[in-house]
Computed example of a mutant assay.
Amino acid sequence: MTQTTGRIFDDFARLMNDAAGVATGVRREAENVMRTQAERILRELDVVTREEFDTVRDLAAAAREESERLAARVAELEARLAKIEAASPATSA
Rank of each mutant, 00 (worst) to 15 (best):
R27K: 14
A19H: 01
M1F: 10
V22W: 02
M1D: 12
T5G: 05
A90D: 10
T4R: 12
E51L: 02
A61E: 13
V56G: 01
D46C: 09
N17W: 06
R50F: 08
E78Q: 14
K83I: 04
E52P: 02
Q37M: 12
L42S: 13
L42C: 12
E78A: 05
V33A: 15
A23G: 00
V74G: 02
E44M: 12
R50P: 09
E31A: 11
S88K: 13
L59P: 00
A72P: 00
G21A: 02
E68M: 07
G6T: 15
E85T: 04
R80F: 04
A72W: 01
F53P: 02
I41P: 00
A13Q: 04
M16A: 13
A86N: 07
R40S: 14
E65D: 10
L70D: 04
T5W: 07
T4L: 10
T5Y: 07
A79Q: 13
E44K: 13
A13K: 04
V26Q: 04
T36Y: 06
L45V: 10
R40E: 09
I41D: 08
R27M: 06
F12S: 14
G25D: 03
A60V: 14
Q3E: 15
I8G: 03
G6P: 02
A60W: 06
E76K: 08
E68V: 05
G6V: 07
L77M: 04
R57A: 08
E39G: 02
R27Y: 08
T4G: 05
A82C: 02
E52G: 01
V48P: 08
A93Q: 14
E31I: 04
E68Y: 02
M34W: 09
R14E: 08
A38G: 07
V22Y: 05
S92H: 11
A23C: 01
D18A: 04
S67N: 07
A60F: 12
R64K: 15
V47A: 11
I8K: 03
T36P: 00
R7E: 09
A19Y: 03
R43T: 12
A71W: 00
I8Q: 05
A90E: 13
G21F: 00
R43K: 06
E31V: 05
T2G: 11
A19P: 01
M16C: 11
T49C: 00
S67D: 08
G6N: 14
L59D: 10
A61P: 00
A82M: 01
T36A: 14
V33K: 15
L81R: 09
V48F: 06
S92Y: 15
E29A: 13
R14G: 01
A71E: 10
A71K: 12
A75T: 14
E68D: 12
L15R: 07
G21H: 01
A93W: 10
E78K: 03
E66G: 03
L70C: 04
L45S: 07
